[in-house]
């Protein structure tokens, strides 16, 4: 006889969301830094929008940067969400869970619920905050929802990799060390600058970077309007990251639990 998994998952998810909300250090940097970067870049590089082919006529460089803000915020939050598992392991709460009849997948998914909720909140927040400054979304409400879905999937994917590292090392510091890698991947993409204005190896790396494909899909929904190809681009990459991340996290968690009975 095992207790029902649904309520266990819901209760652990609630805990993850509450913990996230009660720790400003988890969400404040992930909210403030992307906004600062968008403010600086949209001012400093506003004239980039005047170069033909960078953004469609009638749109702004702020609209160009909206997907970058969402993705950057989600990377911050996803890692913070995944590293919470390391905090549980280090602090002993993980042992409390393992000593109870809780479903093992619920331990992982319940922990990642905080990251997903934060990703959704980030996507909604950035769209609402930047809207009055001209960050429209040409694809309308459906496009806005797609941006939210992309953020949720990316949060789960990034959070899964972070949770996998957490399960392997049991150290929040080790998980935080994963952040620079994510940040480099973001800067080696089209997130902050159009690839057509890049050159040499940097351009080749950016064009091959899956984050570019995802951001380009999101950007197309923001700047050009609804397109199923753009939706597929925006969703396929984070979905693939999710699958790989969950496989990695599940294996690492099983490895840690293998020492238990």
């Amino acid at each position: 006889m095992s207790p029902p998994v649904g309520p266990q998952l819901a209760a652990l998810s609630r805990r993850a969301v509450l913990r996230f909300a009660r720790q400003p250090s988890s969400w404040a940097p992930a909210t403030i830094f992307p906004l600062l970067l968008v403010a600086v870049n949209s001012s400093a590089m506003a004239r980039v929008a005047e170069i033909p082919g960078v953004v469609p006529p009638g749109t702004t460089f702020l609209m160009f940067l909206l997907p970058a803000a969402i993705v950057q915020g989600v990377l911050f939050g996803g890692i913070a969400g995944g590293s919470e598992l390391a905090t549980d392991i280090q602090g002993g709460f993980f042992d409390r869970l393992v000593a109870s009849p809780v479903s093992r997948p619920a331990i992982l998914l319940g922990r990642l619920a905080g990251a997903i909720a934060f990703g959704i909140a980030q996507a909604v927040f950035f769209q609402l905050v930047l809207w009055p400054f001209g960050a429209q979304v040409e694809s309308g409400p459906a496009g806005r929802l797609t941006l939210v879905l992309t953020a949720a999937l990316l949060s789960l994917g990034v959070g899964s990799f972070a949770a996998g590292l957490a399960a392997r090392t049991g150290q929040p510091e080790a998980v935080q060390g994963y952040f620079p890698l994510m940040f480099i991947l973001l800067f080696l993409s089209s997130a902050f600058f159009p690839t057509q204005l890049m050159s040499g190896w940097y351009q080749r790396v950016a064009e091959a970077n899956p984050i570019t494909w995802m951001v380009d899909g999101m950007r197309s929904l923001v700047l050009e309007g609804w397109s199923w190809f753009a939706v597929a681009e925006a969703i396929a990459v984070p979905a693939a990251i999710c699958v790989l991340g969950m496989v990695f996290a599940t294996r690492q968690l099983e490895r840690r639990l293998a020492v238990a009975g």
Binding site: S2, P7, A11, R15, R19, Q23, G92, F93, S100, P101
Partner: peptide
Amino acid sequence: ASIDPLMTGRELLHLQATLYG
């Protein structure tokens, strides 16, 4: 085994109840 400092005592008891079905 730490008791989560970011939860209230009541919240943790409710969570524990759910974990045990």
